[in-house]
């Protein structure tokens, strides 16, 4: 059981929710939790943005009824959560790591940024959003001492266009990348960045812990479940068919 500590809007329809509870099952950035939402049958999977020994931070955008209900949660409310799901990112020691997040794909990269810094690495950060009103966590990444570049599709902040445009415009070099965001963004990164990397995928899930086979994908290493064998996969293993 977790308890809602604080919830605040940080961008258009985007909320940052701080929870307290037993976080021992979260061991790597890129893992997710699965939240029971009153009035909905299936749980809602949300990636962990940041965590410590007794609290965690989740960021979500209101897309449908489930996230709408979640956005109205009050401080002190108890929450039924399955924690520490999925494999998460593996820290690879390289000179020029790059973090690329798109929309609600940004949150898990914040926890990863902190983990990379702990390992003495200093990644560049590129964040992509639709418009300036959607931008969040640029300041938080910069507070970690990292350079955070922004791309917006309508050009209202940073580079006009996609994350790949921001990478080109700012001549950002990288020898390894970590990414989370919509599939078209991930595909573009895989084809435009020559280096290797890790990508966190999104797929509609049933259970979130590998039992129902709802979220399977074909990979170079056979059939994998996004929830249990992922959500983070190595670039080389993705088939993108």
């Amino acid at each position: 059981m977790f308890e809602a500590e604080n919830i605040r809007a940080i961008a258009d329809k985007v909320y940052e929710l701080k929870l307290t509870g037993d976080t021992t099952e979260i061991v790597r950035p890129g893992q997710f939790v699965n939240i029971r939402v009153i009035g909905k049958y299936l749980r809602r999977p949300i990636s962990v943005c940041d965590w410590d020994s007794e609290s965690l931070i989740l960021i979500f955008k209101v897309f449908g009824e489930g996230t709408e209900i979640l956005s109205r949660i009050k401080k002190g409310e108890k929450m039924d959560i399955l924690s520490g799901l999925g494999n998460g990112f593996t820290v690879i020691e390289t000179d020029k790591p790059l973090l690329v997040g798109g929309g609600v794909g940004v949150p898990p990269l914040y926890g990863l940024a902190k983990k990379l810094i702990e390992n003495g690495l200093k990644p560049n950060v590129v964040l992509g959003f639709a418009s300036a009103k959607d931008v969040f966590y640029k300041d938080e990444f910069e507070s970690l001492g990292l350079k955070a570049y922004v791309a917006t599709v309508d050009g209202t902040m940073g580079t006009k266009g996609f994350v790949t445009d921001a990478i080109k415009e700012n001549n950002i070099e990288c020898d390894y990348f970590y990414a989370c965001g919509p599939n078209p963004m991930l595909k573009a990164l895989c084809s435009e960045l020559e280096c290797s990397g890790q990508l966190s995928l999104e797929e509609r899930m049933g259970c979130g812990f590998g039992a129902c086979m709802g979220c399977s994908i074909n990979t170079a290493k056979g059939i994998k479940r996004v929830c249990h064998d992922g959500p983070v996969f190595f670039k080389e293993d993705l088939l993108w068919k």
Partner: peptide
């Protein structure tokens, strides 16, 4: 068998739809 293409899960009032397709 791999089963059907994804998405293959959908929320419903008091239940869910699945079209896993015998993976």
């Amino acid at each position: 068998r791999f089963g059907n293409p994804t998405p293959r899960i959908a929320e419903c009032p008091s239940g869910l739809l699945n079209s896993v397709g015998l993976q």
